[in-house]
Simulated scan of single mutants.
Amino acid sequence: MNRRTAISTLAATGLAAALAACAPMKSTPDIVDIAASNDQFSTLVAAVTAADLVGTLKGDGPFTVFAPTNAAFDALPPGTVETLLKPENKDQLVKVLTYHVVPGAVTSDQLAGQRLNVATVQGQTVHVDGTHGVRVNKARVTSADIMASNGVIHVIDKVLLPK
């Protein structure tokens, strides 16, 4: 290899490395990014925003989120969502939302065949039944194991309400 070819090759390699270092890295989106990118979670995202929990759910985690769909929120008694979203009810909204979050990343294969009571971030426990599909309290997991950079999301068909 002559000197000119060697220098050109080195220069091209260095340029490619420099460009690669500047390019944005593709990474797995976090829990909030995944929810915000899916229209079926628009009510959940509005609630998380109203409760000032976006920063928390964008944190390192890991978290397991049992995420109710818009249809789950729509099934609540009329006026419930609107009432929870009022600024004066923020504490209650935070309790409801954090009742849907479990510390750690728990996938459906870890729940299969088990019945357990699991502590939520809110402080109370939820009953998880993984013997015939997965149920959390009376909600059914309709889509499991949506992996995020800071945890896992399981879609549920009912809103979980703390006691």
Rank of each mutant, 00 (worst) to 15 (best):
K95W: 09
D145L: 04
V134G: 00
L161M: 15
V155I: 11
K26S: 12
R4A: 08
T56N: 03
S42Y: 05
L160R: 00
K163M: 11
D109A: 06
A105S: 15
A51P: 04
V65S: 00
E82R: 02
V136K: 00
K95C: 10
V102Y: 00
D60S: 15
L161D: 11
A36T: 12
I156K: 01
V102C: 02
A144S: 06
P29S: 02
G14K: 07
F66Q: 06
G14T: 13
V159L: 04
D74P: 15
L57W: 04
P162Y: 07
H127Y: 14
A148G: 06
A112M: 10
K138S: 15
D109W: 09
T5K: 12
D39G: 11
N117R: 14
T9H: 09
P162V: 07
A67R: 06
L116C: 10
D129P: 11
L76R: 03
T142G: 05
L10T: 11
P77D: 02
T131C: 07
A47T: 15
D145M: 03
A18Q: 11
A17L: 15
S27R: 14
E82Y: 00
L44D: 04
P77V: 07
A51C: 11
K26H: 11
V32H: 00
Q110V: 07
K163Q: 12
Q114P: 09
Q114S: 13
L15V: 12
A75I: 13
V106E: 03
T56P: 08
A144F: 03
T131D: 08
L19V: 13
C22I: 11
Q124F: 09
G79V: 05
A112W: 09
P77L: 07
Q114I: 07
E88K: 03
G133V: 05
A21T: 04
H127N: 14
L76G: 05
G79C: 08
V141M: 07
G113L: 06
P29W: 02
T125H: 08
D60P: 14
V96Q: 05
V159H: 00
N38W: 09
G104W: 02
K158M: 12
Q124I: 08
L19M: 10
T13D: 11
L93K: 02
E88R: 02
Y99N: 08
T49P: 15
L84Y: 00
N150C: 05
M147W: 05
A21C: 06
Y99E: 10
L111K: 02
F66M: 08
T125S: 14
L84R: 01
I31L: 14
A6Y: 10
Q40K: 15
A11M: 15
N150I: 04
V136M: 03
H154S: 06
T69N: 02
T13Y: 09
A67Y: 09
P87M: 04
A50T: 00
A23K: 12
A18M: 12
T125Q: 13
H127A: 14
P78A: 15
A148I: 03
L57I: 07
M25T: 14
E88Y: 04
T5F: 10
F63R: 00
A67E: 10
N117G: 14
L111P: 00
V128E: 03
A139M: 12
L116Y: 08
Q40S: 14
G133S: 08
D157Y: 09
A23T: 13
A139L: 12
I31S: 03
L57Y: 04
P78Q: 08
I153K: 00
N70P: 04
L53V: 11
L85A: 07
P78D: 15
Q92A: 13
S37N: 14
P78K: 12
A23C: 09
